[in-house]
Design a protein around this nucleic acid. Structure first.
Lengths: 218, 218
DNA sequence: CTTTGAATTAATAGAGCTATTAAATTATAT
DNA sequence: ATATAATTTAATAGCTCTATTAATTCAAAG
């Protein structure tokens, strides 16, 4: 096979992604903001990694703040919609809890750094967060309201030990979110790589289900 | 009672704290580092809040990095010693778990922002954390080793459902630490003040014990 | 081809940050 | 009181960052 043929073969499936510069900036900015938070990410760095001039970032998004808000809002609403998705009807309470845990682990696996960013924003810039509360609150209320209702019924029927809905909700949140918030810790302490961490998370998903189901028994 | 008498009574116990400038800097720096992390805290701000010239911070601690390391090391070793304290002997497995939870909630209540700072350092500057691993590792190993041992015995005796020690350890860490990591979130979402948050944490302490004890039953 | 608007860049103002230096002030000891 | 050492300050060099402006290149339409 000649060298020319080789080159042809390589070049043939050159299906380009055709990202506009604006999209590239958004993509790079999202990665950096998730990695390092708002304050530690500079428009200079975004431009460098996007391969464009720094002024261009401001040309498209005016301020760093606006760029962040654009990305953060989009991310967080998409996230919350899945995180607070209502579970199916016609399944047992136990199955509903497992469905919730699965939904959480699924969306968190896709966005492992988002919880950190959210907590970061909440503490370092509560004002920005206040704005989202009104749009996110209803979602959470809807799902947790349904769960509370079901829990009370189960308790009344004696299928579940007496407990406040708030307790169960916070148990779920703690067990589901913490493995991701502490992801860096896990990698460091156990010295595992990406694959190892993935395995850990999947084991965790099952453990959390077991713990929760056991913990609500009368 | 005359006004003069009143003034005397008020002024009598004026026991001053007599902090040296160096101590003041340390104190202010600790607060700011815990509040905003390493990168977002400037020596300028530390000096301003300590009421001294900015060069003085560098005079006593040479670099911002050294100042941070000094504080962080002291904080984290004191914290870890309590967090990984070994529980008493001669008590039941259930009581041991409750003792661990109490120890965690106690030390976390005294240092509610430390987990955030640690997680922050782990992700944004793993190199700095690597250094501490060797000094902290043994503590964790000792406590978790003991807990693993006890758990295996309980499982073998049929007092506890079959489970890996790792599962239980991570259940405990998740449930104990998350309420503090997400403290800002709690305050925001439920719109509670310091008092309300304190109540929440104390309720949580009991809930966590109940969940854990229930969750390990066969 | 020329015109027009969008995309891109170079340059820079203005601000804050870290760290250093030299000078001034205060405390301590002889 | 004077010399010596510790503490404190003002000033500044050298960075990096955000945001703006004016100029330049590029692309599409007439």
């Amino acid at each position: 096979m000649s060298l020319n043929n080789c080159i042809k073969m390589v070049r043939l499936p050159k299906k380009q992604k055709e990202l506009t510069t604006e999209e590239t900036i958004l993509q790079v900015a999202e990665r950096l903001f998730l990695d390092k938070g708002f304050a530690l990410t500079s428009t200079t760095e975004i431009a460098r990694e996007a391969g464009c001039n720094q002024a261009l970032v401001h040309y498209y998004f005016r301020t760093k703040d606006q760029l962040f808000t654009t990305i953060f809002k989009a991310k967080i609403t998409a996230f919350a919609n899945k995180f607070f998705a209502i579970y199916d009807q016609g399944i047992s309470f136990e199955e509903k809890i497992m469905q919730i845990v699965d939904a959480h682990f699924d969306v968190l696996t896709d966005n492992p750094r988002l919880p950190n960013l959210i907590l970061n924003v909440v503490t370092s810039d509560p004002q920005r967060m206040k704005g989202m509360r009104d749009s996110l609150g209803p979602l959470a209320v809807k799902m947790f309201g349904k769960l509370s209702e079901d829990l009370r019924a189960e308790v009344a029927a004696g299928h579940v030990r007496p407990m406040e809905p708030m307790e169960l909700i916070f148990d779920i949140l703690s067990l589901d979110i913490f493995p991701f918030v502490a992801g860096g810790m896990v990698r460091m302490v156990w010295g595992v790589d990406e694959k190892g961490y993935k395995d850990f998370v999947n084991k965790r998903r099952q453990s959390v289900k077991a713990v929760l189901l056991n913990s609500i028994r009368p």
